[in-house]
Amino acid sequence: MTAAFAHSLTLPLPEDTAALAACIAPRLGPGDVLLLQGPIGAGKTHFARSLIQHLLAQADAFEDVPSPTFTLVQTYEAGDLEIWHADLYRLSHPDDVIELGLIDAFESALCLVEWPDRLADLTPPGALVLGFAANADDSRALTIASDDPRWAATLKGCLDDTA
């Protein structure tokens, strides 16, 4: 991917990850796709849960946000906004992504996708790619990048304070 937009930051505590997610959340809408990369324990699900819970709370909808590892997909409705939280780790064929309905959801919903390498050629252009890594001091290194430069304006103000 040629990054038209790229940013790196350190998130010292889980609360910082949650704060970043809450800052980004209201700026997102249908058709936005966030690809969450990183190994087990890097903080992908924590970020996704924080973001979803923020949007649900704003819509006065309160729901559990369980890990999607076993169920593959968890969907939520925050007012008119449909949210898909997917974990593709268990998928073995790219065709499964189509069967899950994820390709359609990329157009109609806000999608948070863990283990997005399983998408291969089906990776949507313009997605925001968030790469999480755990540092030795338990803080998290986060890189945010996209091939779509519009994200710089969308995320303005969210990335500066926490950097």
Partner: peptide
Amino acid sequence: AMLGSGKKGA
């Protein structure tokens, strides 16, 4: 909803 999802915040 379970803890962490309520108005108490994330």
